[in-house]
Design a protein around this nucleic acid. Structure first.
Length: 480
RNA sequence: CGAGGUGUAGCGCAGUUUGGUAGCGCGCUUGGUUCGGGACCAAGAGGUCGUGGGUUCAAGUCCCGUCACCUCGACCA
């Protein structure tokens, strides 16, 4: 028995030895995703897509609550449109896929498959906007985009991925800056409350900012191997795009002005982040809010009198109060089911067997800490409801503790290297010099993830040791 | 594009050194016994060995070509 258990754990690679391999194994074996016929694409299977749907639902609610609306723009973009903003083209050119033939004829102008939709939004915005009364316009799009990446990994980097991209335009710089930050914080709160994932948010370096943006802000999450994953971005464009695409409005003072613009997005990468932030040796651990199945009811000895009926009854009662519950009546052995649903990360398991029925109880096991207990049958509903909330909270606290114990203030290159080798994020004072950034990358294979709005703790740059008036607290980490 | 690796049953692999009837485990099907942490017994089904050419009486195995995929680097949500 114990042998089989060990074998099972082996099935999903070794969590400690090779974390990326563990990750890939888990997403494939838990049927979240499969490789598509084209290299670098993935097929998101029902179980994985259900997570995405829950993420969508939670985000969409928050977007609507902050005055955004959804819309949809075309997949194909004429190449010339993409080329209007110089930095933007340059940034995306290496990774765009193009359509050159349609309707059996070679096109006079190739169509780009959107790598992102700034250009098409801008084109339409310039037609739609006349007056300050038309502003702000705050649209969001749920869509797929294509970026021909050289190396790929399911969810974390694929040639095609799903995301949401918000594109807003405003009459003033203050307002667009506020929008950029508001959305950044919206993402941070969403990650905390929905994904149970603590993040660092802050400004990206010049080198890492979005092609065509004036400033880019990012949200970085810590994975269980101490590496960082960019989980979301929010860009301030200033008037760069509005000048390139001629988006002007007539202001109150009677003069024409260019709009101020933002964009922000999160993608299916969030699913990858979830997995790498919470998983364990047994597989996935999903936060209840996004778990496709929140409660799995496993009958034990289902053929015995009343077991199946009771399991169904309990499941129905939970579904009736809005819990995503499911009963597993397949003819696998209970042990197999336990392991299977644990691997799939279901937060709560209820075991219903003859022994439980005799005593009028049900056995409950939580996925996050594997604690097992029994509850009175009549309290089942309310206990489970509370338990889901507790698990959500406990998962966040666990992730937060992990992160806080893996963040370290460092003052020089030596300490920085030590921190990275200890699988930690490093907080360091940085003078925003590109040479320092390049040095860290070359010597330590690490990058400046974000710059935080925190009090300086040194008066020199931790990398080059020089004084500077541009010192910021930076997070440096190895990253996915 | 640089460096490594892998293609044999649905999945994971052995077999290749030394050419000679295509194997194992899991899964799948059927019947039966089971059921509180991956059950057991029995009987089955399932393969042009990635692909093209060559050597040979004979190629999964040797030779030449080619394709695909994976991992790690440079680039990115």
């Amino acid at each position: 028995m114990a042998e089989k258990q060990k074998q099972f754990v082996k099935e999903i690679a070794d969590f400690n030895e090779d974390f990326p391999q563990w990750y890939t194994d888990v997403v494939i074996k838990t049927e979240l995703v499969d490789y598509g016929p084209i290299k670098g694409t993935m097929v998101i299977r029902p179980y994985g897509y259900a997570i995405w749907e829950n993420i969508q639902k939670q985000l969409d609610m928050r977007f609507k609550a902050t005055g955004h609306q959804n819309a949809y723009f075309p997949l194909l973009i004429p190449q010339s449109l993409l080329q209007k903003e110089a930095e933007h083209v340059e940034g995306f050119a290496p990774e765009v896929a193009m359509v050159t033939v349609a309707g059996g004829e070679k096109l006079s102008e190739p169509y780009v498959i959107r790598p992102t939709s700034e250009t098409i939004f801008c084109t339409m915005y310039s037609k739609w906007i006349n007056s300050y009364r038309d502003l702000p316009l705050k649209l969001n799009q749920w869509a797929n985009v294509v970026r021909w990446e050289k190396t790929t990994r399911p969810f974390l980097r694929t040639s095609e991925f799903l995301w949401q991209e918000g594109h807003t335009i405003h009459a003033t710089r203050e307002e667009s800056l506020k929008e950029t930050m508001d959305m950044l914080y919206l993402y941070r709160d969403f990650a905390r409350d929905v994904l149970a994932m603590p993040t660092f948010v802050g400004q990206k370096s010049e080198k890492e900012k979005f092609a065509g943006a004036e400033a880019t802000f990012g949200m970085e999450a810590m994975m269980l191997d101490g590496k960082s994953l960019q989980a979301g971005t929010s860009h301030h464009f200033g008037q760069k795009f509005s000048r390139a695409y001629d988006i002007q409005f007539l202001d109150k003072d009677g003069t024409h002005k260019y709009v101020w613009q933002t964009s922000w997005g999160v993608s299916t990468r969030l699913i990858g982040a979830l997995i790498m932030a919470h998983g364990d040796q047994r597989g996935l651990v999903l936060p209840p809010v996004v778990a496709p199945v929140q409660v799995i009811v496993v009958p034990v000895a289902a053929h015995k009198e009343g077991v199946k009926e009771k399991a169904q009854e309990i499941t129905d009662a939970l579904i009736a109060c809005g819990i995503r519950a499911q009963a597993d009546f397949s003819d696998n052995s209970p042990g197999w089911k336990f392991n299977q649903w644990e691997m799939k990360g279901v937060p709560v398991r209820l075991e219903v067997g003859p022994r439980d029925l005799e005593q009028g109880v049900v056995t409950v096991v939580r996925r996050d800490n594997l604690e097992k207990s029994t509850i009175e049958l009549q309290n089942c509903r309310s206990v489970v409801e509370q338990l889901l909330k507790d698990i959500q909270k406990a998962m966040y606290e666990k992730a937060l503790n992990f992160r806080d114990s893996h963040v370290r203030n460092v003052h020089n290159m030596k300490e920085l290297e030590q921190a990275l080798n200890d699988k930690c994020f490093a907080k360091i004072m940085w003078d925003q010099d590109a040479e320092c950034e390049a040095l860290v990358k070359e010597k330590l294979q690490a990058t400046v993830r974000v710059m935080l709005d925190e009090q300086p703790f040194d008066d020199v740059c931790g990398i080059c040791g020089k004084k500077s008036d541009k010192l910021r607290v930076a997070i440096i980490a190895r990253a996915y």
